[in-house]
Amino acid sequence: MHRILRRTALIAASTLAAGLLTSPAAHAADPSPGLAADWLELQLTDGLVESAQFPGFYDDGLTIDVAFGLQASRAAKGAAIDAIDTALQSRVGDYTGAAPEAYAGATAKLAVFVQSIGGDATAYGSDSTNLILKLNRRVSTKTAIKGRIQDKSQYGDYANVIGQAFAVRALKTAGTGKADAALGFLLKQQCRDGHFRLNFAASTTTTKQGCNAGNPETVSAPDTDTTAVAVIQLQALKGKNLKTKRAITKAVAWLKAHQKSNGAFGGGTTTEGSNTNSTGLAGWALGVAHSCGAAQDAAEWVARWQVLDDAGPLTGELGAVAYDRPGFNVAAQTDGITDATRDQWRRATAQATPALANLVLADCKAS
């Protein structure tokens, strides 16, 4: 019963925050992943997310996040995901790097998307790119960093632990020979208290590649988003070994210990305040790990910042999720979602949608 009362309070809170004091809460929509999915679908232009500020610039990584959000929403969005798939097939080189460039994290993320829709990641796109081979080549065989992904780029190496997590899932799903090494290196990035750090060791020659070999306040600082992504990707693996299961258990325990009393999460060192990006990812991770009580608490906090009234400055934005309270209030009371803020709303909604799928405890437990 307290859950029903809390959800009713959420609707009322969203109405008040929007400054719609004359509109009865009873006329507001219920918070839901379906509403968020509907809004996300409207953000696609021919299957891609086009920048609102910079027309003609397409964000392939955010487009894939939208696809993941649509999949996790449990809404019937097959046509939208098909459109994303079709659009990305013509942009493989743009996103993953055209030879001689090769971006490990992007390649891994795209490969996971292709695998998630039942596509062939060994022959994807208009040029039939073998994403698995391309990714496999970005996994180091050097003794000190065996299993670590690396970019091949004139602009530097920006590979990180989030990309490593996607790489592990892609390579494990494909059954490649480097999958175990990649997994082993990912697990090294988990710190003693259970969180995963964001960045690898700066050196590629030192043997100290593990998390706690670095300064816990800098290179090994806690990062909610990275920890959540690691849980999501590791949980998706089939035939997990005991070490992997223990890593997931420790990471989930860390997330639960760092969840705020209102259900929210902050991110890493630069996004410590409560926000729907980090809470969305953490709630998603808690859900797939079957920590459904904590997942529902995260979902209910995220739902506070979902647009539930198709009126006022937010007319036409039903279902969108703001990044945080200030972002919601500014949009609801004065500006609406502007070209300057739309991409932030898109990123927040894409990562919040999977968490909203846990609003109903039974749905989380059944997933």
Rank of each mutant, 00 (worst) to 15 (best):
N160E: 12
V161N: 04
G163D: 01
Q164H: 09
Q164S: 04
Q164P: 13
A165P: 12
F166M: 06
A167R: 14
V168R: 01
R169M: 02
R169P: 02
R169C: 03
A170G: 01
L171N: 06
T173M: 06
G175T: 01
T176L: 00
T176Y: 06
T176S: 08
D180W: 07
D180M: 04
K188V: 02
K188E: 15
Q189I: 00
Q190N: 07
Q190F: 03
C191R: 03
C191Q: 09
C191I: 01
C191N: 13
R192T: 13
D193T: 04
G194W: 01
F196H: 04
L198A: 14
F200Y: 14
S203K: 02
T205S: 14
T205D: 15
T205I: 10
T206K: 07
T207F: 15
T207M: 02
Q209L: 00
N212T: 05
G214Y: 08
E217A: 15
E217T: 11
T218D: 14
T218N: 12
T218V: 06
V219R: 15
V219Q: 07
A221D: 13
T224A: 12
D225Q: 14
T227D: 12
A228N: 11
A228H: 00
A228D: 05
A230G: 09
I232T: 12
L234K: 00
L237H: 03
L237F: 12
K238S: 15
G239V: 08
L242N: 02
K243F: 03
T244L: 02
K245N: 01
R246M: 10
A247T: 06
A251E: 10
V252R: 10
V252T: 09
W254H: 03
L255G: 10
L255K: 07
A257M: 10
A257I: 15
Q259G: 10
K260Q: 13
N262I: 03
G263C: 04
F265H: 13
G266R: 09
G267V: 00
G268F: 07
G268C: 05
T270Y: 14
T270A: 10
T270F: 11
T271S: 08
E272P: 03
E272S: 15
G273N: 15
G273E: 13
N275I: 01
N275V: 10
N277W: 09
